[in-house]
Design a protein around this nucleic acid. Structure first.
Lengths: 216, 216
DNA sequence: TAGATTGTTAATCGATTAACAATC
DNA sequence: TAGATTGTTAATCGATTAACAATC
């Protein structure tokens, strides 16, 4: 009888840690070492070595007893899981201060993301180039999503217009949304949505700080 | 024999969802309704009603059978858990484009955060006001942290200088750090660090998108 | 060889989900 | 009253941690 192997997909907590390992590994690539062990990564980041090993399993590459993992292989394999070895085109909507900061953020290029156009309704912005990316009027979105086959939309508009912009992009075939608007938006179940939600991160910080201060 | 009640602290996943409920509740406050049930919140956000109820337990307030929870009370109680009813002063270091976007982001005021000064090393920025917040030279940090008793530091410097800035702030008594630099930084175990890590969020998105495209 | 590390299998822990009585 | 919802206790699920044999 054929045993079907259960393919277990990478858990979200593992994905999050993998991106963090990547930045540590990236730094170590500069140094002379060829290998890195899960123990070393764990020590640097203050994590459990067993957890690191378990996470690295999902990359599918195997290490060498006594040596660890080949840094270059590990680096490549993690980028592969995140799909950062490929580049996806993206549209950014809302070229306010946060939008402009993201347009100018070089780093995303090494994270598989290429923002190829920005959109806004502010006439002063339309036609301008920000960090060499042209800003169009929002009403160009339907046409351009289809023509350029763009799959990722980045939402940097105010909370009040976020749902409308999301609907517009979804209706025109966007597949994934990265939402920076501080609000819950509804999307059909087959659309990928990832909330950057700065306030979520801030909430954890202020909560912990309050606990800490209370403890005195 | 006295039974000591085990006080269970709010789990991180619950805290994250609580901040999201807050934004939904905030919108509903405008509407006429006085009460909201966990079922309604769950429907709006596409979550399990049981999970919402469980999360709301941590606020300590009790609901009314058949009605749900008083919106105002719930709103207040969630802000209380996050410590968003108080305001903490914060310093922001690195007034580049991301730093400037954060300095201008009004929303954090309602999240218990008040950025009272910015820091940079760029002479063109020092002395300037950005969104009405003055930018000082980084060498003013030690003196000012102590004098103003600031507890929160926001790191918006490039990866290459993040660790140095973190060390400087920790050495001078900062208690909590909100790190936007795309790098792992080391802090003593008693210092709270929260990584905003946009790339982590992006990694999840690009991974999911790749899985989705593969599935075709 | 000795020892450090991997890789696998099992145990534990905690969060999510389920079940159901209590309440208005 | 009937019915929707809360709140509590139990069951399930999945992630983390532990244990240990295999490897170079």
């Amino acid at each position: 009888m054929i045993k079907l192997e259960k393919i277990k997909s990478t858990p979200i907590p593992t994905l999050k840690r993998l991106t963090r390992y990547l930045s540590v590994i990236h730094q170590l690539k500069e140094s002379k070492t060829d290998y890195i062990s899960s123990t070393e990564i764990a020590n640097i980041m203050g994590l459990d070595p067993i957890q690191v090993r378990k996470d690295l399993e999902f990359t599918g590459i195997s290490g060498f007893p006594r040596l660890g993992f080949k840094i270059d292989d590990l680096h490549f394999a993690i980028k592969e899981i995140l799909n950062w070895n490929n580049t996806e085109d993206a549209f950014l909507v809302g070229a306010g201060s946060l939008g402009q900061a993201i347009l100018g953020y070089d780093r995303f290029k090494s994270c598989g993301l290429k923002i190829i156009a920005g959109f806004d309704i502010n006439p002063e912005l339309i036609g301008k180039k920000i960090s060499n990316i042209e800003i169009y009027h929002i009403n160009k979105i339907p046409n351009l999503i289809k023509r350029l086959n763009v799959k990722i939309g980045i939402i940097c508009v105010p909370a009040s217009s976020a749902q409308d912009v999301v609907d517009l992009m979804v209706d025109n075939g966007i597949l994934a949304l990265w939402n920076f608007a501080p609000i819950h938006v509804n999307v059909p179940s087959d659309i990928i949505i990832e909330n950057a939600q700065l306030s979520q991160s801030l909430g954890i910080l202020t909560h912990k700080l309050a606990e800490k201060i209370k403890a005195y």
